[in-house]
């Protein structure tokens, strides 16, 4: 039997990979995918804890996270299309009309 802490470690690793991807990637779609990776890392944690506590609550939470992530994806991709129409690029370095 694989100990639960391994799942938690994997979940934390996925989450951190998401953060790194968000910070270093330069394409809007890839950045967006990194955020999804973070959310899925969290989902793994929820399932693990649900198993540990023998509570179905954690798994229900995962369903809601997936629904919200889908809604977010719909809006996010729409915004990305709007960006592409306005600028004809998806590189974050070139979306810089406004700067500090």
């Amino acid at each position: 039997m694989i100990p639960l802490s391994w799942y938690l470690l994997l979940s934390a690793t996925l989450f951190c990979l998401g953060i790194v991807g968000f910070l270093v990637r330069r394409n809007l779609i890839t950045i967006f995918m990194s955020i999804e990776l973070m959310l899925n890392g969290v989902n793994l944690s929820f399932v693990t804890f649900a198993h540990q506590w023998h509570l179905v609550k954690g798994q229900i939470f995962v369903f809601f996270v997936m629904v919200v992530a889908a809604a977010e994806a719909a809006v996010g991709l729409a915004i990305i299309i709007a960006i592409f129409r306005a600028r004809a690029t998806l590189a974050v370095d070139r979306i810089d009309l406004m700067k500090l």
Binding site: F15, G18, F22, L28, I31, F32, I35, M38, L39, V42, E72, V75, G76, I79, I80, A82, I83, R85, A86, R87, I95, L97, M98
Partner: peptide, 19 residues
Amino acid sequence: GKGPEAAIKYFLLGSFATG
């Protein structure tokens, strides 16, 4: 030009923080 740029910045950073 600025409209979608504002939206994408808000969206990406907002979802990041929600994570």
